[in-house]
Amino acid sequence: MGAMNVIVCVKQIPDPAAPGALDGATNTLKRDGKLILDESDGYGVEMALQLVDAAGGGEVSLVSMAPNGETSGLRTALAMGAAKGVLVSDPALQGSDALTTAKILAAAIQRLGGADLIIGATESSDGYTGTVPEQMAEILGLPSVTFAKKVSVEGGTLKVDRQTENGYDEVTCALPALISVTAGVVEPRYPSFKGIMAAKSKPVEEVTAADLGITPVGWAGAGQKISNVAQAEARQAGEIIEDDGESFGKIIGFLENLKVI
């Protein structure tokens, strides 16, 4: 293959290091603060860059969806080496379910003219529904290979090692296609200083759901409503001790009490 164009779906999420919170009015995850690139998506961006490099030409584009016009996560992926992005940003997207999200992202992919390969993560780190890539494949009429842990393109054919419950399957697939990649498929690069500077001037087109011709979105299109939020029964706090060199005896005693040794 002389050139290969890849589109990566990236999600910008609240920093997972900060404790999550629900919006009191809607019971959805609060996403109003600073958003960062979901760590799970760094693997897809890196995979895309490596495949384009191996093909000897082409480019990596990004699609993302966020309620508040946030682009800092997209800039991270652009700094890694992606060429451009489309951000679907619209307050009406608040509360969108996975199916609506897939419709929006698929429309954004079509706005970019499609690609030889579409890459997503197996699931996001904040919502983790885990169905969006496969839903996009169906909307776009593409074959798909989910849970890819090793990916190459040989003679225009996609070759994937697909993770299974107790090992992996070797899968081949014609292009164009869609894959979801596991964390660890490749080691994401750190953006270089030059990459960070270059990312500032790379094009990110901002569009609304209506621009893509999609309605209804947000809660209106979700087909589900949150009826209750409750605290789970907390586990009783246990005994926590600082190791004094002899605390392994506590563990042995604990195991003896349960009659497992």
């Binding site: 494949a137 074959p143 290979v145 399957d169 070797e170 899968v171 697939c173 296609a177």
Partner: peptide, 15 residues
């Protein structure tokens, strides 16, 4: 399945 059926398993590995 048309184009959507293009992904095929060629080998199975059990760990």
């Amino acid at each position: 399945l048309g184009a959507t059926g293009a992904a095929n398993v060629t080998a199975v590995h059990v760990e």
